[in-house]
Amino acid sequence: MEIELRLVPENKRRPVPELKNLIFGRLFTEHMFVMEYDCNRGWHSARIEPYGAITLDPAAIVLHYAQTIFEGLKAYFGVDGKIRLFRPWENMRRLNRSAERLCMPKIDEDFVLEAIKKLILIDRAWIPREKGAALYIRPFMFGTEPSLGVKPSHSYLLIVILSPVSAYYQEGFNPVKIYVTDEFVRAAPGGTGEVKAGGNYAASLKAAEVAKSKGYTQVLWLDAVERRYVEEVGTMNIFFYFEDELVTPALSGSILPGITRDSVIKLARHWGLPVSERRVSIEEVIEGAASGRLKECFGTGTAAVISPVGVLCYQGQEYLINRGETGPLARRLFDELTAIQYGEKEDPFGWTVVLG
């Protein structure tokens, strides 16, 4: 399938604004990639066209039954002037796993990745140049068939949009305060917690608002059955550094298999640090914080890469971790991963894709 180019004429393109102090997800580039699906033709009409509004039937299945999935990755402007993607094939694979879970059609991973590369190069002027900033890439798919019957859609749109974003840490690499909820549940075994389905995030909003009202940055979710075992933090996976062992909750089917999570595990093991993927109870975390056995805690994700945690609040009691300071392991992981992403250090894992 060819990708049709319907580009904005050069003399009619918007001037690229100053790409500093951006609010995440508020500014979008000149073009987007669009591809359509129907059950008779399969995927078709792939094109790069001007960024703009889409038209949906009011009865579109996505609007009523939330049949929608998405991904998030970044393009980095390296110190050598080259554009890099970080493990983008993993995002394509995860998009297909999400599609399968929500009864949506799979994509040709290589084709869509090539389309994303082409889109980035067309709008390359929108990639911020400062260290820490990047071009955020959002592929998403949703059911478009007009039907009020509860069933998988027979037609879909896949769209990729681009958004320049500032460095995540505007005021330094400072630890965040996390609120542990035992009232609300993010995902249950057999549900959709391990895929990037839009409904997962809608279900998380109430707890996030409660945490925010109490002065905390994000929510730490516990398991849905016993309300005892740690799962993940808001939009991030979670890690605990107990003495000389790095621990993260095992992928149980209700935890998103984060790409940064996997990168941290591989990098830490490469350094010779013991890493365990296992069940972690909130009691173990609280006891570790109280006794000092818990040396560090941090979240991992595409947006922040590494987000140190300085305070946990559980059942009205606050627990300080590492005196509320950023730990050396979190700092080392952040520095190493970002150095690979921006081409400052050699990539020993073959994680980066260089576009030019």
Rank of each mutant, 00 (worst) to 15 (best):
E296I: 04
C313N: 12
F142P: 01
F142Y: 06
P328Y: 05
R138M: 09
L85A: 04
R13E: 10
A115G: 09
Y179T: 00
M104L: 05
L148W: 09
H154D: 12
L158C: 02
K82T: 10
G301N: 03
R129V: 14
N322G: 09
E277P: 03
N91V: 07
E18G: 15
I282D: 00
L205Q: 13
H154Q: 11
V305R: 04
K266L: 14
K12H: 14
V210E: 09
L333M: 07
A53F: 09
V247S: 00
I265N: 00
A304C: 15
E49Q: 10
K106I: 10
A207N: 05
A250V: 03
D80V: 14
L294C: 04
L102D: 01
K266W: 09
H31T: 09
R84F: 08
D335F: 07
V309S: 04
R14T: 07
N91L: 07
F77M: 07
W351H: 02
F28N: 02
K151V: 12
F77H: 12
K82S: 07
P15Q: 09
A207C: 09
I54C: 13
D80K: 15
L5N: 03
A250S: 05
V275C: 01
E90S: 04
R124K: 11
V225W: 13
V180N: 00
E243L: 04
T260V: 08
K212Q: 14
V285Y: 04
R84H: 09
Y136C: 08
F77I: 15
L267W: 06
L121H: 07
G81L: 05
L73N: 04
S163Y: 08
E346Q: 12
A289T: 00
G288T: 01
S204T: 10
S276M: 10
L85I: 13
V285C: 04
K295C: 05
N40A: 10
F77Q: 07
D80Y: 15
Y76V: 08
G343P: 08
Y319P: 02
L121K: 13
S276R: 12
T68V: 09
Q315P: 02
L294P: 03
E209M: 13
I122R: 00
I255Y: 03
L19N: 05
S291F: 12
E18W: 14
L135V: 07
R41K: 12
D57A: 10
K295G: 04
V305S: 03
R129C: 06
F173N: 04
I23A: 15
L329T: 00
M35G: 00
P88E: 04
R331L: 05
E130Q: 08
A115E: 03
P249R: 01
V354G: 15
E100N: 13
G324S: 09
A133G: 14
Y136W: 09
G25S: 15
F173S: 04
D244I: 02
I54K: 10
P348S: 11
T235M: 06
L333I: 10
A188C: 11
F239V: 05
G190I: 01
W89I: 11
F184G: 00
E284P: 01
S291D: 08
G132D: 10
I120Y: 00
Y168D: 03
E171N: 13
F184Q: 07
E336G: 11
A303P: 06
L22A: 06
